[in-house]
Design a binder for these strands. Sequence first.
DNA 1: ATAATTATTGAAATCGATTTCAAAGAATAA
DNA 2: TTATTCTTTGAAATCGATTTCAATAATTAT
Lengths: 343, 343
Amino acid sequence: MTKKRVTIYHLAEELGMSVSYVSRALNNHPLVNQKIKDRVKKRATELNYKPNANAANLRQGSSRTIGVVVPQINYSFFSDVISGIEEVCSQNNHTLIICQSHDSYKQECLAVETLIHNNVDCVFISVAAETQSATHLEEIKKHDIELIQFDRCVDQLDGYKVLNDNESASFEVVEKLIEQGYKRIAFIGGPVHLNVFRDRKEGYLRAIKKHGLSIPYNFIIDNALSNQTVVEAATELLSLEEPPDAFFNVSDHQSLTILKIAKSMGIEVPQQLGIFGFANEIFSGMISPSLSSVDQKSKLMGNKTANFYFNHILNKREEFPSLSKEIIKTEIIVRESSKRNNS
Amino acid sequence: MTKKRVTIYHLAEELGMSVSYVSRALNNHPLVNQKIKDRVKKRATELNYKPNANAANLRQGSSRTIGVVVPQINYSFFSDVISGIEEVCSQNNHTLIICQSHDSYKQECLAVETLIHNNVDCVFISVAAETQSATHLEEIKKHDIELIQFDRCVDQLDGYKVLNDNESASFEVVEKLIEQGYKRIAFIGGPVHLNVFRDRKEGYLRAIKKHGLSIPYNFIIDNALSNQTVVEAATELLSLEEPPDAFFNVSDHQSLTILKIAKSMGIEVPQQLGIFGFANEIFSGMISPSLSSVDQKSKLMGNKTANFYFNHILNKREEFPSLSKEIIKTEIIVRESSKRNNS
DNA sequence: ATAATTATTGAAATCGATTTCAAAGAATAA
DNA sequence: TTATTCTTTGAAATCGATTTCAATAATTAT
């Protein structure tokens, strides 16, 4: 009962011409008369003809497909980026295949395998927290597939990268905290083998150095993405005789956790404790006190990553000079959690 | 400089056997000796052979690919559903192609076209707010592609559907409001041509009827998904001489807007005004007062939708009786915004 | 030893498009 | 009229896998 799909052969027979001619007519080939094109296309829609992309891709080598690998689709940052990527890809008639690594190196490798099998033209990747090697990414290149890393990149591999200005944004954030009179600023970071967290830490350190603040070594906590780690670290720090008077965090989730701990310990935010985070999550502006944060322009990052491919790689257009890195300016959003009323 | 991809032909030549044999060896065909399988596979990885899915799909008719269409990838509900879908699909060695309709019927049709071109085996769709016709979905079936609708479905089309218990959840919510002594309960809904919003409205109406409450006609607002509509409607209602004493909303964003309006008008939540929403957005539990809401188990919905395909459609397995609808039980989460202190 | 059966192996067709190459037809120039 | 150019058209090869069908080799039964 399964009707066979209408192919270009049926069309050709119906129209009494050869398949090659029909193919050219459908693809707007200049060697075909306009009238014929119209006739073929009309009949094609009538017969409900849909080209088989597999066949075309097999023949052409290109698949007009982009593979995306992210740690989690449903983290707001990544879903925004993907939304931005999708927008541009669909404008350019490209399809998206999406995989998540769940922050596992192994699953990331599997995802990369899948994308190679599917013959994608390019891979956009933001690597898993676990990822410390680039062999799987080199694999991609070996297969003549283009590669663009965005946000979380591996250092071992050069090539196209789309990034935020993590270092300078962090520097500015810490200066803003200092302006407000905070002096004992702690840093809650992520795994330092990932560029984004390392850069944020470096920005923090640069500001601290510039202003000659003396910070106890244990005010700097790396690898604190999990909630539990934050709870433990912050509780310990805030219980010190001389506790920090501010926290700069690499995520808003960390900020939120710290805010809760502060509340439970009766510490007033922002008077006694300033909090500044990263990512500008949807809840950051909603809760009370509202959380200061760095907006990463995530959707724009998606747009730019995709455009990077279409402008710089696919059609190396003259108006776009070739480059390998694109830095996206973040926006620093000062809210209640870092603004003392002494102004 | 572009090295040609290693194909099964290279492999066959290297190994001194025919391509058919190599193919069977790689695919664990029972007719091939285990030793040969091992040898072929070993050499395949050595030579860095990656099968071309396009070629296989073309030949086999099936693509092991699922297409997903949602209004917006970065709405938390949909990104959670997609995450759940992805999980199950990757377990079953299927690839995901994802499209967004941006709530436009036209873009939804384009997305469907794309998926047909790409020869997907099945489409999972949650339709755009604009969608009122099913012709594009019938198109999918005409091409012998399976179709599962989830959450937002069109009524005109029967077939597989995965849904929340919108009606009964709404009924319960309204009863919970009534228990708390709220009597003049307004309803802020969505476009009624979409099942989910209609069902929520019906649940609301059933509870109202059961308890014999008299509600002025203008307390029931349909098609209020946009922020502006909510602002206008809520402001008007709350300015009445006899304003509503509670709102049941089809989304938490609506709840949030109403909460803000109430605050700005000096109306106390939940004492003077109860608020209950839908979707249990990430911020709902974080703000103050925290917002009561219905958790839709979105990731589970993704899992179930995908499993529906693998269990009921792809391999009609005996342990799963054939059915066409799956209802997922929501969880009703009562928070501060609907709990009067009179308990 | 021969027939019957089973296990291995491979040649060639196939999926549905694109594209090369060449032929045929039409238009123009000599 | 013939030679030349340009346009229109189609046969067949191609992409890289899978699969059918048949042939050969190895094993077992008679």
